[in-house]
């Protein structure tokens, strides 16, 4: 008889198990800052497509001090990169708090839960649950996708591990619960418009404590959606960090408007970009103004700056927006 079979045959008398102690927040610097009423700044750090660890160190160096935490993308655009767990763990070592992104595309619930325990063991606390870009757009278009669960179900599973000390399958989380600050994405401009806030409400109910949004250019529309979210009572339990993308040119604005789902760029923004020869400067100005404007909207608890492969811009935007971050702040 195998050891496993023997163990099955002779069940041990059921010992009274004490569940692991509850997780008492805040569990991360980001959660602490938001809880204390501070204005959070997050950015994005894309891992390299090979073992160029220097690239990670460099991006950490650029962002450290200027942001409260940085998202580590999880094979974004379905292109193979260093894993978000490993990159986030390196960031923990180097003193830049990570928001680890985790996509449902590549993992079933076994891997999600196991990876999450592993991530928390490595000091990772903030996690952002996403469905993930479809693999046909990426470097492995022939790959199978998993989608055992979606991002909302993933949130629920992670919340269950933390709050109820239960895995998705109903077994106990033993010894210690993962101390997690749970996040999700929100596209306030996405289609279909009828369910933008309804879907946000589902995410909050599933366990999201913060959301980072798709980039915001249409302030009027964003205010409207935030009002709806407020009216639904979502903003008492949820920190919203609107996404900010500094444009580099009018062409980039037009391209994004045409090709990226869930982004609405009003005509006057495009006109402004066309009107200035220095597109990068105009884009930075728009980003700074947007930050200052969203700050005034009730429920906005920070901003998420996505300077794609332009991490060096983040410090400039943060300081020009008067966010009082930066070394020595």
């Amino acid at each position: 008889m195998t050891e496993a079979a023997a163990a099955k045959k002779a069940p041990k008398p059921a010992a009274e198990k004490t569940p692991p102690p509850p997780v008492v927040g805040p569990v991360s610097g980001l959660e602490k800052l938001i809880q204390s009423g501070g204005f959070a700044v997050t950015a994005e750090l894309g891992p390299p497509k090979g073992l160029d660890l220097e690239a990670i160190h460099k991006k950490v160096g650029i962002l450290k001090g200027w942001v409260d935490a940085a998202n580590v993308t999880d094979n974004q655009t379905a292109v193979v990169r260093v894993s978000s767990i490993a990159t986030a763990a390196i960031m923990v070592q180097q003193g830049l708090e990570p928001v680890m992104q985790m996509v449902a595309r590549d993992r079933n619930r076994i891997a999600i839960q196991s990876d999450m325990l592993g991530a928390t063991a490595l000091g990772i606390r903030n996690v952002l649950c996403l469905s993930g870009d479809h693999q046909t757009f990426g470097s492995e278009p022939g790959a199978a996708n998993v989608y055992d669960v979606d991002s909302i179900q993933m949130l629920g599973i992670l919340k269950g591990m933390r709050d109820d000390a239960k895995f998705a399958g109903g077994t106990d989380v033993e010894g210690g619960r993962p101390p997690l600050f749970l996040g999700a994405a929100w596209s306030p401009d996405a289609d279909p418009a009828e369910v933008r806030t309804l879907r946000l409400a589902k995410k909050v109910r599933a366990g999201a404590q913060f959301v980072q949004t798709q980039c915001i250019f249409d302030l009027a529309q964003f205010k409207l959606e935030m009002k709806k979210a407020g009216d639904m009572g979502l903003l008492d339990k949820l920190a919203v960090l609107p996404g900010i993308i500094p444009l580099k040119s009018a062409g980039m604005a037009k391209f994004m408007r045409k090709n990226v789902a869930g982004i609405s760029i009003p005509e006057d923004v495009v006109k402004r970009m066309e009107g200035n020869k220095d597109g990068k400067e105009e884009g930075t100005k728009i980003a700074v103004e947007t930050i200052q404007a969203v700050r005034e909207i009730p429920g906005v608890r920070g901003v998420h700056i996505m300077a794609i492969e332009w991490e060096s811009k983040v410090a400039d935007i943060v300081s020009r927006a008067g966010l009082k971050k930066g070394p020595g702040a």
Partner: peptide
């Protein structure tokens, strides 16, 4: 993506 609580951000 066989999402059960969709749509994802890619619906346009």
């Amino acid at each position: 993506k066989r999402l059960h609580n969709g749509p994802c951000g890619g619906s346009s």
